[in-house]
Design a binder for these strands. Structure first.
Lengths: 329, 329
DNA sequence: AAGTAATGTGGAATCGATACCACACGAAGA
DNA sequence: TCTTCGTGTGGTATCGATTCCACATTACTT
């Protein structure tokens, strides 16, 4: 592996001159430049990013912390981030928390030790330790998915989208509406979406039975089980079910089909996520499009703004959404 | 951002001693160790990975080059890789070629400049430039998905799985079997899978009409269009269709359902990939499970072996697969 | 009592780049 | 003719860690 020193020797110039050619700054004669360029090519010289980072304090890398790598949402978001950052000469360093809150902090430190220029966190919780770690960080940071106090955040409009879904059911005449959520420790998905549902019900003076509200854990299976609970335990059975993720909705759909409960005539169904799946199940699932790629892109733009020093104050951005009504309602 | 120097000053020892404590080598008195540990904690010292890499020539990072980030296959594979590498103290640096062959080479150089300890490439093509670049590389390298000459490769058994799928159709009495493939520039998915199909047909003396073979481009839409071609153009219509990816199979399914062609009684359908989708469409799609996570894990293990110097010669590993028959056949 | 081994610590070189500063040289202006 | 400027180049300190080597101590052998 040749270094800048070797190139300099070969070209018969000093390291400084090689550096000048490579970075295109300072005065270099045409002749010297040519010799350097040639030497670089001949030796297959690739500059060490580490040495450069060490000296310049810029790595050109943005760390991205995901709850899980292999979800459709995550990969769409990453796609959006990657596109935007790559266009601006940055690379991504991905890490994965496997949904463990303590790993979020651990990964932030890991990324910091790698001198990333900024960090994007796809947040799933909002605990105090996390907020403190971020506050101490002193590098550009953007959270996506949860509103973190004191941190630039990009969030989906969980409350209003859930509200709209519920109202959409109501406007079609449904009065008993079941809800499949997740634990409220996930503020965005667990708390806000449930709140949207509850407030929409309240607005239309519809009572909510406790037994209509079930918790899942994002998986198909938990959606299936939740639907089973809803349809087998409830005294008054729901005529519509709102699951806060497509996967759980499709799990629920599985239960309903298995038990010959027609969708949508007996039970209407709504999810959130606009997954590929939602389009291809039978009947096609109504869902909410959160524009994940745009979200990733927007998040990346915010990081870039901080990087170029354009903004300092913490921003909060709430994203658009769109209800997609398909044959499941 | 405190450095080792600051810690040393605070603890009243030399940088050397701090380094010894951190890396747990060399003699350090209990007393000195305690002071150092305390200083580290108080100052929130995080060692610079770059300085360390520069000195030790080990970064603890493995580069992973993906054709596209947001596919189910890619994210499963990455999951497998990540799990295995993280358990061994390595991190992943992800890059993305957006399916452009020239970006594969570009990304290899980029990763090399970042001193990655090894590179995993989810390959989609096998051009000469790529092979040369890899040969020059001098760091551990494993290709996944395509067999590259002179390179340790982990490959799916594209030929035999396609052969088996085709024979499975034949054993159920199908004689006209349509095929939805991709261009042969993708040797594994385009060439080998088609070859498996052709050879299985030949083995059973079944003629193959040219019009039964359609090319798609991995998308739902291309599967839809290919099915349309098959059913509308062919003189002798297929009674079974084998699409080399689940997405295209599901695109085809969309066409068939839209045109009231019953699956499986009128046309049986098989895909490859064992995607989440395949399980949840109606009817559930028969498919081939390539165990992507295991593939990722195996690939990571090979990199680790090279890293620890256990093996030097290039290995070729062919993975297992499993046919999953569901109601689409 | 003297020599050797074990333990503990620090100085300084090093990794590969960048960038400040000094300096050389020819051309233009005073 | 002497400054002064623009251009071109190299020396050297620096970034933050590791590691070799040298040098103290202290402990253990004979």
């Amino acid at each position: 592996m040749p270094t800048i020193k070797d190139v300099a020797k070969r070209a018969g110039v000093s390291r400084t001159t090689v550096s000048r050619v490579l970075n295109d700054n300072g005065y270099v004669s045409h002749e010297a430049r040519t010799r350097v360029v040639e030497a670089v090519k001949e030796m297959g010289y690739i500059p060490s990013a580490h040495a450069k980072t060490m000296r310049t304090k810029r790595s050109g890398v943005i760390g991205v912390i995901l709850p899980r790598i292999s979800t459709e949402t995550a990969s769409r978001v990453v796609n959006g981030i990657e596109e935007e950052l790559a266009a601006n000469g940055y690379q991504i360093l991905l890490t994965n928390t496997q949904l463990k809150p303590e790993k979020e902090i651990q990964n932030i430190k890991l990324l910091k030790s790698r001198q990333v220029d900024g960090i994007i966190l796809l947040a799933t919780n909002r605990n105090q330790d996390l907020l403190e770690t971020i506050a101490d960080l002193s590098i550009p940071f953007v959270a996506l998915g949860q509103e973190l106090t004191g941190v630039t955040s990009v969030v989906y409009d969980d409350y209003h989208s859930a509200f709209d879904v519920t109202e959409s059911f109501i406007s079609e005449g449904h009065q008993q509406i079941g809800f499949i959520g997740v634990p409220e420790t996930d503020h965005a998905v667990g708390f806000l979406r449930k709140q949207g549902y509850l407030d929409a019900m309240a607005k239309h003076n519809l009572p909510v039975k406790e037994e209509w509200i079930q918790d899942g854990n994002f998986s198909f299976e938990s959606g299936y089980q939740a639907a089973k609970q809803l349809m087998e335990q409830a005294q008054v059975k729901p005529t519509a079910v709102f699951a806060v993720t497509d996967r759980m909705a499709i799990g629920a759909l599985g239960y309903l089909k298995e038990n010959q409960i027609n969708v949508p005539s007996e039970v209407a169904l709504f999810g959130i996520g606009a997954s590929d799946l939602s389009k291809h199940v039978t009947p096609p699932l109504s869902t909410v499009d959160y524009f994940n790629e745009d979200a990733g892109q927007k998040t990346a733009q915010l990081i870039l703004e901080q990087l170029t020093g354009k903004i300092i104050e913490k921003e909060k951005i709430k994203l658009n959404y769109r209800l997609i009504k398909r044959d499941s309602v």
